[in-house]
């Protein structure tokens, strides 16, 4: 479904991605692991077009994404949930959700996401529907960021560090939410620092170091590869 090949990206003059390649199949939940500053977020941004890759190719369902504006990529069925919970602070919760709707997009399969469905699944957001986004707690903001993206009925979502800075109890909520999302037929590519959280939810793993992929495998392979974990994950 998604095929990233030899992507090089820069921030200004600094070379961040040195030929990243990875693949996702329909329905998978894949986790991108690695230490701080190895290019995980930049990989997601390069797929979404927020950072424009200097070389390489990103293909989504047969279409080349490199060089396209983010809104065009979004309209092809990608969703992006950035780190730092970038909700629209001066919009109400309800308006934040409305912002996620893309006209004329149907869900991949099953029931499409709608404001009513979100409120049914997350009553806490309905209670706060007229509150300004900036007044929500960290956990509520994280949920809102994810469901706002789901409102556009994406086929694939890119989720950047969804559990960062959240209390352990809320981390559990957010992970359960991602599992629900995945069960609804949405493919997920997630960046995560929290190894213990990632190992519970993902089917497959990529590990990055210095702007390139250094490991790829499923849960058993990752647990077996002690050297890899020691070198690239543990502090």
């Amino acid at each position: 479904m998604l095929e990233v090949k030899g992507v090089h990206s820069y921030y200004g003059k600094s070379h961040i991605l040195h030929g990243v390649s990875l693949e996702l199949k329909e329905g998978e939940l894949v986790c991108l692991l690695g230490r701080n500053g190895v290019g995980k977020s930049t990989t997601l941004k390069s797929i979404m077009g927020v950072v424009r890759p200097a070389a390489g190719s990103v293909r989504f369902r047969g279409q080349e994404l490199c060089g396209k504006e983010p809104y065009k990529i979004a309209r092809l069925g990608l969703g992006y949930v950035p780190e730092d919970r970038r909700i629209f602070r001066s919009l109400t919760v309800h308006e934040n959700l409305l912002m996620g709707i893309k006209s004329g997009r149907q869900s991949a399969e099953g029931e499409a996401w709608s404001v009513e469905k979100v409120y049914r699944l997350f009553p806490r957001l309905e209670e706060r529907k007229n509150n300004k986004g900036g007044h929500l707690s960290g956990g509520e903001q994280q949920m809102l960021t994810v469901v706002r993206t789901l409102m556009g009925n994406p086929r694939l979502i890119l989720v950047d560090e969804p559990t960062e800075g959240l209390a352990p109890l809320i981390v559990k909520d957010v992970l359960e939410m991602l599992i629900t999302v995945r069960q609804s037929g949405v493919t997920v590519l997630m960046v995560e620092q929290n190894f213990n959280a990632a190992i519970k939810v993902a089917d497959r793993f990529y590990i990055m170091s210095k702007g390139a992929i250094v490991f790829s495998g499923n849960r058993e392979e990752l647990m077996a590869a002690e050297e890899v974990r020691k070198n690239y994950l543990e502090v």
């Binding site: 979404m48 983010p70 809104y71 979004a74 950035p82 629209f88 308006e95 893309k102 997009r105």
Partner: peptide, 17 residues
Amino acid sequence: RAAVNDSEMTNTLGVNV
């Protein structure tokens, strides 16, 4: 108003910013 808050995010939600 969303674009005033965060135009990049607005763009990734499918709005022709």
